[in-house]
Design a protein around this nucleic acid. Structure first.
Lengths: 247, 247
DNA sequence: CATCCATGTGTACGTTGTACGCAAGAAGAT
DNA sequence: ATCTTCTTGCGTACAACGTACACATGGATG
């Protein structure tokens, strides 16, 4: 696809960004389309039919409008994705009273996992990681602020925040990909999945090249406890950060 | 860049008359396709022109073959991706002598980051995380084995391995997304990027809602040292695992 | 020599993102 | 009132995509 570079407006007033436009008061009576409505419709489609179902035509259909109408409000599909990410990310909140850095980061992490599991299409857009939409800025600010009061230097503060975020995204992505894979094959439980994959697994084991995998297959007791696994990793990261805060 | 290709196909789009077919070129020498050749060509395209440029037609063109030819060897695009991932993942190696768990995991993590930065299209396929291709199985086995000898139970062993992997993928994805974003806008350095984003940044700061971001913007000295940031997060995860190994 | 099968070819269909020009109504100026 | 201009939605159109399907061909096998 052509990487069209939107050239900036020379000299004149800056083109209002998507977010500035979003905070703008009343779009006009004539305007039946708003960014709010567009975002809501797109998220609804993605939640119900998967991220791939969010096409400009499908979206227009849901909005009761011609296929090209949404382009008056949104630059393209990237903009639309940003809108969607921002909208669902508004659900991320931590009680105001909480000040302990670890509690803040941990809470956001657990919520982020839940959020991505609830909106699996989020995992399919890699750029979502860096998209600084208003609601994601708020989340980041909250976490950075919690770290800042612990005496960490600016660089370490950001690195620690990003470490947690990276783990959360990578982890949720894996979990979603795994779940999708199971669903695509119609397997409804971990046992069913393992049973279906048993032949392949037996072959791999028989090669003798994967003793550690075999050890896991035989000895593990929490193979399907994804929440535990997530918490394990998360606590590893948080412990590591804790060490650097001088505990 | 919108590639305006469409090079002359022999025969053209004209009606293929009987006579035309009669003196059709000699029985062209069959260049037999192999999975190896297909994978190599696909990776080459992705490396040179980006993951989005890997289309079945472009691939066929590079292989000197008709658009549909590759389908005899590959089920579809998902298969092709798996092939590509497996191929580049062969580059991940750790000296045989290394036995220390931390050294093994750390080395693979650093190499994985380099690998993804060298093949940024890897970040664009979310399912890559769970794809157990042969070369990725080998990598996983090596890391699990390193953890297994430390007395960790099977569940924790897998959880620890996945924690590191998740961090690495999430982290590399962010880094790549950020780099792509810069390149797409023609910014060639961190300073140039910040300068270009300054207006937006000023607006955000002016709202007073992001004091921690402001603190970072003012106080950070390693804003562009991505390798350092990666190592920071990685060591956090490894330290956390270390704590659980009773070290 | 006949037959089969694996492999490459060609055409074709449905779907996608979106560029571009037009239309309808509101707002401001004359 | 009339005219211009801006905003918003509509409709057509196009290139590119993945891939289904029917056909062609040539080496292996009987």
């Amino acid at each position: 696809m052509a990487v069209a570079k939107k050239e900036g407006e020379e000299g004149g007033a800056e083109a209002p960004s998507l977010w500035e436009r979003m905070e703008r008061p009343a779009p006009l009576p004539r305007a039946s389309l708003t960014l709010e409505r567009i975002a809501a419709a797109a998220v609804e489609i993605a939640d119900e039919e998967g991220g791939a179902a969010v096409t400009m035509r499908r979206l227009a259909g849901k909005l009761g409008v011609a296929p090209m109408a949404a382009y008056r409000h949104v630059d393209g599909k990237d903009d639309l994705w940003a809108l969607m990410i921002d909208r669902v990310s508004r659900d991320l909140t931590v009680p105001e009273g909480t000040t302990d850095w670890r509690e803040v980061l941990r809470s956001y992490a657990l919520q982020s996992r839940e959020l991505m599991l609830a909106h699996p299409w989020m995992a399919a857009m890699p750029t979502s990681v860096i998209m600084l939409t208003p609601s994601r800025m708020a989340v980041a600010e909250r976490q950075l602020a919690a770290l800042a009061v612990c005496g960490l230097d600016a660089d370490s503060m950001m690195a620690a925040f990003r470490a947690v975020t990276s783990f959360v995204h990578g982890s949720a992505q894996t979990e979603i990909a795994l779940r999708d894979y199971q669903e695509r094959n119609g397997w409804t439980s971990g046992d069913e999945t393992r049973q279906a994959l048993a032949p392949q697994m037996r072959y791999l084991i028989s090669t003798g090249r994967y003793p550690a995998f075999e050890q896991y297959a035989l000895g593990a007791t929490r193979k399907d406890d994804r929440a535990w696994e997530f918490a394990f990793g998360l606590d590893c990261v948080l412990d590591g950060i804790g060490l650097r805060l001088g505990v």
